[in-house]
């Protein structure tokens, strides 16, 4: 079935979340492998929410056409007030069966503090999948693979 060879797409995201005490930062590598769902390339929004579920920042947006962002419904809604949400964190949409690898610098204060990594996903003519992935941002969770609801075969992250 897998006609498409998984392609390692490595993108270094120059993303440093603006927090007051940015004393220490850790580099985190997020790996998202898509299923072979047999459709056009997926739009993905990778973002952080805090302990209360409030939006804390965007790590990556795959897919460049703004008119489709409404299909990444949760991210689009939560991040609406963030004028810089696309600053330096956008890339091409991710083809079915392919792997997106993104690195980001995260402040230590974000880790093990109740923050969550979320991914919204959508593909043309297919269903929208907000909150495709929701995993806590914690040292315990690092390295553990998690499947998404519709498009994502497995998602995991590693601290450097």
């Amino acid at each position: 079935m897998s006609r498409t060879q998984p392609l390692l797409t490595t993108i270094a995201a120059a993303c440093a979340l603006a927090l007051p005490a940015m004393a220490q930062a850790r580099e985190v590598t997020l790996t998202t492998q898509l299923k072979n769902y047999g459709g056009d390339g997926a739009y993905l929004a990778v973002y952080l929410t805090d302990a209360k579920g409030a939006y804390a920042g965007t790590l990556w947006v795959a897919g460049g056409k703004a008119k489709y962002y409404k299909h990444l419904a949760d991210w689009n809604r939560l991040s609406a007030g963030d004028g810089q949400r696309l600053q330096g964190v956008t890339g091409a949409s991710v083809g079915a069966g392919r792997t997106l690898t993104v690195t980001a610098d995260l402040a230590d204060a974000l880790i093990d503090a109740g923050y969550e990594i979320r991914i919204d996903a959508a593909a043309e003519d297919m269903r929208d999948s907000p909150a495709e992935i929701r995993v806590p941002l914690s040292t315990a969770q690092a390295g553990k693979a998690q499947a998404g609801k519709t498009y994502i075969q497995s998602f995991s992250y590693q601290f450097k």
């Binding site: 419904a73 809604r77 609406a80 007030g81």
Partner: peptide, 9 residues
Amino acid sequence: LDAAPEPDV
């Protein structure tokens, strides 16, 4: 196409 940012509700 979109009128305004989606409401935060």
